[in-house]
């Protein structure tokens, strides 16, 4: 029986590749969105304006304090009630951007805050504008602190894309879930799904370990 199911699994393997492609698409678009949004929020979070910083702090706490699956449900089920209709795919991207940017924001703010005050003062003294201070002096130094946890966060975000399967995005986990109904070999089906995730996330784990050693 197992051999028969294995045969079936091989037959529908292209279906898994489509799922993998969707996962890669959701993951990389999200990494891009989260990074941009996370850096902007992080810079303001570390900034001098206490009010803006606090508001971002509350946003971060709300996001970090709730499970991602609950956030997805809120976006997918509640926005339509308020008249905003979203397909599953854009809803998934929106949820990922909101969640991921909150985590990256804290990493970026932590990195910026780790730069000694003297560096800011030196940059101010040489007449650089605020943007230039960040661009040439602070952020390049902060990157050393930011990069290792940032890559670690990327791994977590890639894995979190599996949760968007709950609103019907046809990515890897969803493909596994649909397959297992027809091919009732749970170990086989989800081992395959696991291997495909491993293939995309393990290189990033190795990169994160390497960066951690190098930046230490």
């Amino acid at each position: 029986m197992m051999a028969f199911y294995f045969q079936r699994l091989v037959e529908i393997f292209p279906f898994f590749l489509l799922g993998l492609w969707m996962t890669v698409k959701v993951a990389f678009i999200s990494l891009f969105n989260c990074t941009i949004l996370g850096f902007v929020l992080g810079i303001f979070r570390a900034g001098k304006n206490k009010f803006i910083s606090r508001i971002i702090g509350v946003y971060v706490s709300l996001i970090r304090g709730t499970p991602f699956v609950v956030q997805i449900f809120i976006i997918f089920f509640i926005l339509p009630e308020w008249g905003i209709q979203l397909e599953a795919f854009p809803a998934a991207l929106l949820a990922m951007a909101i969640m991921g940017s909150a985590f990256i924001c804290e990493i970026v703010a932590g990195g910026i805050n780790s730069i000694p005050k003297g560096q800011w003062e030196a940059a101010v003294s040489s007449g650089l504008s605020l943007f230039q201070q960040l661009r040439f002096v602070v952020v390049p130094q902060a990157m050393k602190v930011i990069l290792p946890p940032l890559v670690g966060q990327y791994v977590l975000l890639i894995k979190d894309t599996s949760v968007v399967s709950v609103i019907g995005v046809m990515e890897l986990t969803r493909v596994g879930w649909i397959t297992v109904v027809r091919i009732p070999e749970g170990l086989m089906v989800f081992s395959l799904v696991g291997v495909l995730y491993f293939v995309i996330s393990y290189p990033l784990i190795l990169l994160s370990n390497y960066l951690e050693r190098r930046m230490a």
């Binding site: 979190d160 949760v163 799904v193 696991g194 393990y202």
Partner: peptide, 9 residues
């Protein structure tokens, strides 16, 4: 390196 949801399933 694999998602928790996949481990659960």
């Amino acid at each position: 390196s694999t998602p928790l949801l996949v481990q659960i399933y």
